[in-house]
Simulated assay, not measured.
Amino acid sequence: MSEVRLAAESRTEFGKGAARRTRRSGKIPAVLYGHGSDPKHLALPALEFARVVREHGTNAVLSLELNGGSELALTKTVTTHPIKNYIEHVDLLLVQRGEKVTIDVPVVLVGDAAPATLVTQELSTIQVEADALNLPEHVEVQIAGVEAGTQIHASDVVLPAGTSLVTDGDALVAAVNAAPTAAQLDGAEAEAEPADDES
C-alpha cells in the first residue's frame, strides 16, 4: 500500500472548546504518538482524511507534512460521533520505514459454498504483523464449492508475502454447515408453538 500525503498542522489549544473550534474550521483534532516521543497534537483536514479512510481503509500509511518536514503515521483509532457520524478525533501511531506493525485486517469470503450449505463467518478481521509500508488492505478466503462440515481457521488463511499471523491459528474464521431443510424448519416452528390446552 502506498503512502498517502496529508497536510497537518500543530495544535496549541486543547480541551473540548478547542476541539470544537478545530472541527468548525473543517479540521479533525488528532494525536500522534509512538517511539517514545512526546505526543504531538495535530489538526488534520477533515474532508481529505475522510476520503483516505473511505478509499484506503484505516490501515492507510499517512505521510504527514508537518512544520516543513514529514512523518509517517498509521491510523490507530478513529472516533466517530455516534449520531451525526462525523469524525471527532483520530489517534495516529508514528512508524518508520522497515518497521513491523500489528494491525487488524478485514477477512473477505470469496465465492459460493456448495449447494444446500450455510456459511457462518465467525471473525470479520484477523490480526497480522507486516511491514508498515506494505500492509494488506484485506485478506481473502476462498469458499467456492466448499462442502458442508468444513471449518476454516485463522491458520488456513493465505497471507501475502512478508505478512505473519498474530491471531491464534486455531481461531475459527468461518464454518460451512448443511443448510436446514424445509422439513427441519417446519419441525422447529412446530416445536416453538405452544401446545393446545386440552383441559
Rank of each mutant, 00 (worst) to 15 (best):
P39M: 09
P194S: 09
G162P: 09
A154K: 00
N59R: 01
S124F: 05
V110M: 13
A148C: 03
V53S: 06
G98P: 04
L66Q: 03
L64D: 00
V108W: 10
Q127C: 08
A171P: 09
S37N: 13
G15I: 02
G187Q: 15
L133C: 08
A50Q: 07
A50I: 03
Q96A: 14
G57S: 00
D186M: 12
T75N: 04
A175D: 15
K84I: 06
A154P: 05
E55P: 04
A113I: 03
A175P: 08
H56N: 09
E198W: 03
Q96E: 14
S37L: 13
A19I: 06
L92I: 01
S10K: 13
L44D: 00
G17F: 07
D104N: 13
A8Q: 00
G57F: 04
V128T: 02
L44V: 04
H81G: 08
T150F: 03
S199N: 15
S63T: 06
V157D: 04
V146L: 11
E48A: 05
G26R: 01
D186R: 14
V157H: 02
H41K: 02
I103M: 06
L123W: 01
L6G: 05
T22P: 01
P29K: 04
A178E: 14
A161Y: 06
E55F: 07
A154W: 01
S63Y: 00
